[in-house]
Structure formats: C-alpha cells, structure tokens
C-alpha cells in the first residue's frame, strides 16, 4: 500500500532521515520505534507531505534549507511531490504529535471542522464512531477542547484524523506525555480503531512497551537510520530493544 524507497531528508547540513526504505501492507499496524531525535517526526512529516510546506516556509524566510530525496509510493502511484492536502484527499492522514486540537472549539465542533470535506451523513457517522471509540469524548462533547486533559485531547486528535476518512492513518507519538494508565487506554483505542474500520496504521512512538506486542511490523530507527526490523512480538524479546526501550 505504501512504499518508501531510499528516503533522505536533510535539515540544512544535518541529516534527519538517512536512506530509509519501508513498506506498509494494507490492514497492518506498523510501528516506527525510535528515541528522541531519531527522525520519527521528520519521517511522518515526509510521508504526509507536510515537509513540503515546511520547506517552502523556510525557503521564503531564508532559514534552513530542507532537502528531500527518494520516493514515496501510495498504491503504486508516486506521491513524492504531492502537497499535504492532496495526500490527505487520497487517504493519507497524519495525526501530529502533542495532540493539536482547536482549543476554542467544542469537541463536536472540532470533529466537524476535521470532517469539513465529507458529506453530512458521513460526518454524523464519523462523530458517532468517535464517541463509540472514545466514550470519554462523548461525556465532554460540548466542552471546549482546550480544557480537556492530555489523554482526552489525544483521543480527540485521533478522532479528528479519522473524520477525514483515511485509508492510511499516521500517528505521530500518540502516547507522548500520557500516564501509563492513559497510554494503555490510548493503545486500546487504537486497536479498536483498526478493528472497527480496518484502517492501516503507521505509529511513530518511543514508548515501545505498551505498543510493540500489537505491531504487525516494526521499524527501529536511530539517528535517521534503520537498525532493526521485524514483527513486533519478535522484537519484544530482542536484547537490544530490551535495554534501549524497556530499561532492562
């Protein structure tokens, strides 16, 4: 479904993603595991096309020069040069890190904004689906999103990404800043999302422990380079993963 080949991203002279290739099959949950500054967010931005927007903005203000090389194919079609909104229309939707929501709008309004391009019936369905998946959101449906807790905002952000109707959902650090209990809840929610909608997921995350057992395939990256690959449960037993991500 998604094929990434020889992807290289430079921020000025610093390399963020180094010769990375990966493949995502339909219906899978794929993880990109890496510590801080490994290049996870850059990878997600490149897959979703946001990098082109950053590139243009930096260029205009004479800031850092961003260089992107390599190819991204989605359903056999080359989308390497497509801007973010085109990719979202084709079904690649990114849920950015630090749960970005519209703080001054209510939960329902947030979902409606995200579903602006869908039909009215689809929006209604989508909102119901979000409330089914995340019962916490249903309880706060008319509350301002800015007043929700971090975990609830994360669930809302995932719900908003779902509203766009993705074929491939990219989650950037969905567990960031959440308590272990909240993390398990979000992981459960992510599994529910897959079960209900059959959407394909790519999750970038550094908290590997709650996530790894459920990953169909995981890519471990360090300093922008692939170091390990394999099905999630297999990697659980890998001594390197244990020492680097579980602190054993």
């Amino acid at each position: 479904m998604l094929n990434v080949k020889d992807l290289i991203v430079f921020y000025e002279n610093a390399i963020a993603v180094n010769d990375l290739s990966m493949e995502v099959r339909e219906g899978q949950i794929v993880g990109v595991i890496g510590s801080n500054s490994a290049g996870k967010t850059t990878l997600m931005n490149t897959l979703s096309g946001l990098i082109w927007d950053m590139l243009i903005k930096e260029q205009r203000k004479g800031g850092e020069r961003i260089t992107v090389m390599g190819s991204v194919h989605f359903f056999e079609e080359d989308i390497s040069k497509l801007p973010a909104f085109r990719r979202a229309q084709q079904g690649i939707v990114l849920c950015r890190e630090r749960h970005p929501v519209f703080p001054d709008s209510s939960v329902t309004e947030n979902l409606k904004i995200a579903g602006y391009l869908r039909k009215r019936a689809e929006v209604k369905q989508g909102i119901e689906l979000s409330f089914d998946l995340f019962p916490n959101l249903a309880r706060h449906r008319s509350r301002k999103a800015g007043f929700l807790s971090g975990g609830e905002q994360q669930m809302l952000a995932i719900g908003m990404a779902m509203m766009v109707g993705p074929k491939l959902l990219l989650l950037d650090e969905p567990l960031l800043g959440l308590s272990p209990a909240m993390q398990t809840q979000v992981v459960e929610a992510i599994k529910d999302v897959r079960r209900h909608t059959g959407v394909t997921l790519v999750i970038a995350e550094q908290f590997a422990r709650p996530l790894l057992p459920w990953l169909d395939f995981a890519y471990v990256i360090e300093n922008g380079m692939l170091t390990l690959t394999g099905p999630g449960p297999e990697l659980m037993d890998n001594p390197e993963i244990k020492s680097a991500y579980f602190g054993v």
Binding site: I8, F10, E12, N13, R65, T67, M69
Partner: peptide
C-alpha cells in the same frame, strides 16, 4: 549521483 546544495560559513 544525487547532489544537494550545502550552505556553510
């Protein structure tokens, strides 16, 4: 061969 433009002091 892939090339990129580099900017240095």
């Amino acid at each position: 061969m892939a090339q990129r433009k580099e900017r240095i002091d």
